[in-house]
Amino acid sequence: MKILIIEDEQALMESMLAYFTGEGNICEHASNFAAASEKIELYNYDCILLDLGLPDGEGLQLLSRLKKLHKRDGVLIISARHSLDDRLAGLDLGADDYLVKPFHLSELKARVSAIVRRKNFDGDHVITFNEIKVDVSAMKVSVADNPVILTKKEYELLIYLLSNKNKVVSKNAIAEHLWGDEMDLSNDFDFIYTHIKNLKKKLSEAGAKDYLRSIYGIGYKFGEL
């Protein structure tokens, strides 16, 4: 994946860069409007992470510029503004998704992966991890060609973990992803455990290795043993 991060907050940008770099991803960054529009014009990206509040320009204008250039880059808006108008304006201008600060890096990664998958729909609609295959278009999971029947939540959890493979994903992030932050179930993660347990069981019964590990009770990691 080739990703452009447009973010003026240095610390936040560094975290994102670090999280996305590796595993064949190429990450570039721009911290102001001028640099960002130059990069957008010169190169093509699989996904652009766009912070709306830039010091020298309105992020939404970059969206219209992209449209004018007839580029097919995926765009994920990152904004501190929780206002509905901005969300709608962004999506109207051709953004693919909208994420409100603060967010979990794992959530960001999952959404970027989803955008990139959608953009490259012609070929790559199967996520493969060793013997595990997920057909995203048909929502089917198989382990070494044995079909695995998952519930909707288990399926979403698996996609989320696969998007963040080899990363530690916190329980908070999983809870917010599966149930949304509005449900306000703060500090109550028992039910995540149930889903993790069921997912592990179903995958190993179908013959997959145990890729899912709990990390110090804070979170989970799905990846190479």
Binding site: A11, L12, Y19, A80, R81, S83, K101, F103, S170
Partner: peptide, 27 residues
């Protein structure tokens, strides 16, 4: 809008640093 932005940004930094810290995995 501004208050939200100004307060959410440091929070986003804390959150992302926590996520990054979690990746170092030697606790």
């Amino acid at each position: 809008d501004n208050a939200s932005h100004e307060m959410m940004t440091p929070l986003a930094v804390i959150n992302s640093k926590l996520d990054s810290l979690l990746q170092t995995e030697s606790f």
